[in-house]
Design a protein around this nucleic acid. Sequence first.
DNA 1: GCATGTGAATGGATTCACAGCT
DNA 2: AGCTGTGAATCCATTCACATGC
Lengths: 221, 221
Amino acid sequence: MSPVPTSSDRDVVSELTTGRLSVYLRCLTFLELQGQKTVSSAELADRFHLNSAQIRKDLACFGEFGTRGVGYDVSQLKQQLVQELGIDRTRNAVIIGAGNLGMALADYAGFNANGFHIVALLDIDPVKVGRTSRQGIPVLAYEQLDDVVRRNRVEIGIIAVTATAAQIVHDALVAAGLRAILNFAPVQLRLHEGVKVKSVDLRINLESLSFHLKKVEDGMT
Amino acid sequence: MSPVPTSSDRDVVSELTTGRLSVYLRCLTFLELQGQKTVSSAELADRFHLNSAQIRKDLACFGEFGTRGVGYDVSQLKQQLVQELGIDRTRNAVIIGAGNLGMALADYAGFNANGFHIVALLDIDPVKVGRTSRQGIPVLAYEQLDDVVRRNRVEIGIIAVTATAAQIVHDALVAAGLRAILNFAPVQLRLHEGVKVKSVDLRINLESLSFHLKKVEDGMT
DNA sequence: GCATGTGAATGGATTCACAGCT
DNA sequence: AGCTGTGAATCCATTCACATGC
């Protein structure tokens, strides 16, 4: 369209590519730990069941990090991915809903390391307020949402409430200024412009497994 | 290839389509509860932020359920989806790993209703064995895996252990005869032929949100 | 020689648009 | 008239294959 290159050139990194960047990061972290200095796309593909061409394409989105004839420098590429993914500094999050799932997520290792930190759980139930998770993350009153967000520079909201309450909570998170939301409630949320929402729907995953089992039963291997 | 139509004709239901079938089922359940008798693909699309053509295409995989000029019968289509997804009977599951996440999943409402039932949690830690989740689901010894699977007709395995243990557990589940696995460990599992594995990677979702925030910061909206 | 980075080719999935049925 | 079911068209993602550079 436009004859001049725009900033949207670099913008075209698909959701799928982004997800794979995280995977690559994890692979590189592993290799670095093993003391490996250098890795080729072919080796990465072999060891982690990926496709080498895809790895190269994905990485090429951000510039040229490899050396022809050699491959990629493990530590350098890892650092590059950390930066591209924006986890070179810590991002704070709150969890709405201090039920089983919310509590478990609050203590989940992956949510409290390498760039993320759960500041608090919020709940409307006065009985829960004042408690903490096993790891000591406090449960605060839901009404304090705006305060908590402002005071702790929270950037990410995690929805762990029932399906019925999810849309309301979602809208409140957006109103509180959050632009990144991870949703565990089984609903089709109405989205807001400029706000990224990722939904993890546990039920859908189970049903997809059931579908597979059904096919096997019906002899459709 | 083959000139005669094979059973694989109906086999070509993509992963993405399957996921959407679950979504449609949820929408229909909602509409049925509201007492709505009939619904058109356009109305479904409007109300739940979907695409009407896609809905029709997806549903058409299983035959013709709609009535031209009218739409779909809510209850009938719902029942059809329940059947296609294979949740017209209950499927039993075990969770491996009785940590925070495993415990939370065991009590998760969506995992103990409408076609699914968590039979037990299994753990190698003797301290945990003998306890139960809040809802009373027992924690048994991991060594009893084969027994538990056989006795309870378990069809689904849920991996809620650390990344390091995940592959071993996965292989044990397959050896125990399971053909459907839901994995919460952040690893690229080596897969077995004929075994369906769905992975839920919480970390990837967070990183994808961070990536979005980074882009916003850098003014790439 | 070897492995990257990338246009070109392929393969899927989504969307369009309309023929066909009620 | 209205809405489904579907070929055709479009869009996006993956894979191939090779020119390019170390």
